[in-house]
Measured scan of single mutants.
Amino acid sequence: HTVDVQGVTYHFDNPEEARKFAEEMAKRLGLQVHVKDGRYKVE
Rank of each mutant, 00 (worst) to 15 (best):
K41P: 04
E17Y: 08
K27A: 13
V42Y: 02
V33M: 06
E16C: 04
Q32S: 13
K41W: 15
E17V: 10
K41A: 12
G7K: 05
M25V: 09
H11I: 13
A26C: 03
A22S: 04
T9M: 14
A22M: 01
H34L: 10
V8Y: 12
Y10T: 06
E16F: 10
A22Q: 00
V5R: 01
A26E: 01
V35K: 06
V5A: 06
D13T: 12
P15E: 14
E43S: 08
N14M: 11
F12L: 04
D37E: 06
V35N: 05
M25Y: 06
F21Y: 08
Q32N: 08
H1A: 14
T9Q: 11
E16I: 12
K41T: 15
V3M: 01
G30R: 04
Y40T: 03
G30F: 05
D37P: 04
G7Q: 06
K36A: 13
T9C: 07
R39M: 15
K41C: 06
V5H: 04
V8A: 12
T2M: 15
V3R: 00
R39I: 15
Q32A: 13
Y10D: 01
V33E: 01
A22Y: 00
E16M: 10
L31P: 00
G38K: 04
A26L: 01
E17L: 11
F12A: 01
E16Q: 11
K27G: 08
P15Y: 05
A18W: 00
Q6D: 08
V35D: 06
F12P: 00
A26Y: 01
R28P: 03
H1M: 12
K20A: 13
D37C: 07
V8Q: 12
A18L: 02
K36F: 09
K27Y: 09
L31F: 08
E43C: 08
E16K: 09
R39G: 15
V5N: 03
V5T: 04
R19K: 13
T2H: 14
L31E: 03
Q32C: 07
E17T: 12
A26K: 01
R19L: 14
G30P: 00
P15Q: 15
D13M: 11
K36L: 14
Q32M: 10
P15W: 07
E16T: 11
V5Q: 01
D37T: 02
V3G: 00
E24R: 09
K41S: 15
V42E: 02
D37R: 03
M25W: 13
E23R: 06
P15A: 13
R28K: 14
F12R: 01
M25P: 00
E17F: 08
F21G: 02
G38M: 03
V8W: 10
L29D: 03
L29R: 02
R19H: 08
R19E: 08
L31R: 02
E24S: 10
V5L: 08
A18C: 05
G7I: 02
R28E: 11
V35R: 05
E43M: 07
A18E: 00
R19A: 08
V35T: 06
R28F: 09
D4W: 12
H1Q: 10
H11Q: 13
G30H: 07
A22G: 03
E24D: 13
D4V: 06
V42A: 02
M25H: 07
M25C: 07
A18I: 01
V33T: 03
K36Y: 09
E23G: 07
V8F: 11
R39V: 15
D4G: 05
E23H: 14
F12K: 02
G30C: 07
G38V: 02
T9I: 15
Q32I: 13
F12M: 04
V33I: 07
K36H: 14
G7Y: 05
D13I: 10
H1C: 09
K27E: 14
V8D: 10
D37Q: 04
G38Q: 04
M25T: 13
Q6S: 08
A26R: 01
R39L: 15
Y10E: 02
V35E: 14
T9V: 14
E16L: 11
G30E: 04
L29A: 03
H34D: 06
D13H: 11
Q32G: 06
V35M: 12
A22D: 00
H34W: 09
H1I: 09
K20T: 14
N14K: 12
E17I: 09
K27N: 11
P15V: 10
E16D: 13
E24H: 11
D4F: 08
K20G: 11
V8S: 10
E23P: 00
G38C: 08
V3F: 01
F21E: 01
H34T: 15
K41M: 15
A26N: 01
P15G: 14
R19F: 10
G38F: 03
L31C: 05
K20I: 13
V5G: 03
V8C: 06
G7C: 06
Y40G: 01
H1N: 13
L31W: 10
Y10C: 04
L29K: 03
D37A: 04
G7N: 09
G38A: 03
D13W: 10
G38N: 07
Q32D: 06
G38E: 05
V33S: 03
G30T: 03
F12W: 04
V42H: 01
A22F: 00
V3Y: 00
F12Q: 01
E17P: 06
R19W: 10
A22L: 00
K20S: 13
P15T: 12
V3T: 03
V3Q: 00
G7S: 07
M25A: 11
D37M: 03
R19M: 09
K41E: 15
H1S: 13
G7D: 08
R39S: 15
P15N: 15
L31A: 10
V42F: 04
K36M: 13
R39T: 15
E23F: 15
K41I: 15
V33Y: 06
Y10W: 10
D13F: 11
H1F: 12
Y40E: 02
R39E: 15
Y40V: 03
N14C: 06
E43L: 06
H34R: 09
L29E: 03
H34M: 11
F21K: 03
R28Y: 09
A26P: 00
E43W: 07
P15C: 09
P15S: 14
D13C: 06
G7L: 05
H11F: 13
K36I: 15
E43P: 03
Q6N: 09
T9P: 09
D4K: 05
A26S: 05
Q32K: 14
L29Q: 03
E16H: 11
Y10P: 00
R28G: 05
E23C: 07
E17H: 11
H11N: 12
R28T: 10
D4C: 08
H11M: 12
D37N: 08
H1T: 14
E43N: 06
G30W: 03
D13Q: 11
A18D: 00
G38I: 02
V33A: 04
Y10M: 05
A22K: 00
K27D: 11
V35A: 05
K20E: 14
K36N: 11
Q32H: 13
L31D: 02
G30M: 05
R28W: 08
V3L: 01
Q6P: 04
M25I: 11
A18F: 00
F21S: 02
N14H: 13
V5S: 05
D4L: 08
H11W: 12
V5P: 00
D13V: 12
Y40M: 03
V3D: 00
D4A: 06
T2G: 08
L31T: 05
L29M: 06
D37W: 03
Y10F: 12
G30Q: 06
T2D: 14
K27S: 11
T9E: 14
T2S: 12
A26H: 01
E24V: 09
V42M: 03
V3C: 05
V35Y: 15
E43R: 05
H1Y: 14
Y10I: 05
F21I: 02
Y10G: 01
N14W: 10
V33N: 01
E43Y: 10
V5K: 01
K36R: 09
K20L: 14
A18R: 02
L29Y: 07
A22W: 00
Q6H: 08
K41L: 15
L31Y: 08
H1E: 06
A26F: 01
M25N: 07
V33L: 07
K27C: 08
V8K: 13
F21M: 04
Y10R: 04
H34K: 13
G7W: 05
K41R: 12
Q32T: 14
D4T: 08
H11T: 13
R39K: 15
F12G: 00
K36G: 06
R28I: 13
R28D: 07
G7P: 01
V5I: 08
Q32Y: 10
A26Q: 02
D4P: 01
K36C: 07
M25E: 14
N14R: 11
L31H: 04
E17Q: 11
D37Y: 04
L31V: 06
D37H: 05
E24F: 12
L31K: 04
G30L: 04
P15M: 12
F21L: 03
Q6M: 14
E24W: 10
Y10S: 05
E17S: 12
D4Y: 07
T9W: 08
A18K: 01
E16P: 05
A18H: 00
E43T: 08
A18T: 04
R28N: 08
A22P: 00
V8H: 12
